[in-house]
């Protein structure tokens, strides 16, 4: 499982890199990294929401471990989006940052999930999973409201490139490179989440064992 994931991810990353750098038209190469990261981050946050709901219903520590893995990976990809965005915006728009709907929503999303990770870090014991899941639900409910509110406030981003209605869309070879990189980023996300999940499970088992151990000591004395 582990080796297969690593092999697939590496192959896709190399293929995506080749498509983006050598095959696709030579403009805005950062596009092939910025957009796939954004989609991947979105999906990871959505997966975190689903895992949190699953935890609230079934109370399985596995769902909690998944929620943690998805949130951490989501914050990493969201950070990539927030770093590559201004790098791309500066030459194209002439400014680093603008308070437009998708930029601002991404920033607020990043803030929400960093707050989520902080809450996890600063709480202890069994309750962590429950209160984190509750916050995840609040955070995910907030994202569409943020998006709508910023859109009413001001917007400047280009219309969504894929599925943005009439006149949207990109050259086929660009689209292929884009989706190749998206596949690579999704594979990388799946890989990191899988590893993080294993670590989270190991930590849970360790805590469980420590709790049992302390009970034993009480019995002896």
């Amino acid at each position: 499982m582990k080796n297969l994931l690593i092999a697939v991810t590496l192959a896709l990353l190399i293929f995506g890199f080749y498509q983006a750098i050598y095959v696709a038209p030579e403009e805005a190469t950062i596009f092939y990294y910025h957009v796939p990261s954004a989609w991947t981050a979105m999906l990871l946050f959505f997966a975190n929401f689903l895992a949190s709901i699953a935890y609230l219903i079934w109370r399985s520590p596995k769902s909690d471990a998944w929620a943690l893995a998805f949130a951490e990976a989501g914050v990493v990809y969201c950070t990539i989006v927030l770093v590559t965005g201004p790098l791309w915006a500066k030459p194209v728009w002439g400014i680093w940052w603008t308070w437009d709907a998708r930029l601002t929503t991404t920033l607020v999303m990043w803030l929400i999930y960093v707050a989520y990770l902080m809450l996890r870090r600063f709480s202890e014991g069994q309750q962590t999973a429950t209160i984190a899941a509750a916050l995840a639900v609040f955070g995910f409910l907030d994202v569409p409201i943020v998006y709508m509110s910023i859109r009413w406030w001001r917007t400047q981003h280009p219309q969504p490139v894929i599925g943005g209605g009439q006149g949207s869309g990109i050259a086929p070879e660009m689209k292929f490179a884009l989706f190749a990189n998206w596949a690579a980023f999704m594979a990388m996300a799946a890989m990191t989440c899988w590893f993080r999940y294993q670590i989270a499970r190991a930590e849970q088992e360790q805590e469980h064992a420590a709790a049992l151990e302390s009970l034993k000591t009480v019995e002896v004395h």
Binding site: V108, I112, A115, F122, G139
Partner: peptide, 19 residues
């Protein structure tokens, strides 16, 4: 329920309250 009670509240409330 966290270790740093007073600090945690604004960290959670501000991002969600943006809209």
């Amino acid at each position: 329920r966290t270790r740093n009670r007073e600090v945690m509240l604004p960290l959670l409330l501000f991002p969600i309250s943006v809209p």
